[in-house]
Amino acid sequence: MSQFEIVLLLGMASITFAIRYTLFAVGDRVRFSPLVQQALGYVPVAVLTAIIVPAMLMPGGEGLELTPSNAYLVGGVVAVLIAAFSRNLLLTIFGSMLVFFLWRWWLFG
């Protein structure tokens, strides 16, 4: 391993652990206000949506790709529909991945 890799690993590991552990560590001395409690309820939905929407709409990372040739968009829409109607995570993952790969295979052979 290079020196760059060692510094990178130690840095990423300590930053990530510090983020995850700080509140647990001081937990018994901190109480949240009702506003913060309310806001926390929206965090997972907001963060995860902010990750997946660009991944679906701009998978190349360079502008919107709102066309049927964008398999990420087609698969993503299918995932939303399956999840909305079934509320079943496993079915959502399998169903949308099947559509995604079939779509790509059909497009690109």
Binding site: A79, V80, A83, S96, M97
Partner: peptide, 12 residues
């Protein structure tokens, strides 16, 4: 795409 599928299944 697996990440998109998983996170969608969690969020929706």
């Amino acid at each position: 795409f697996a990440m998109v599928a998983t996170f969608t299944g969690i969020v929706v």
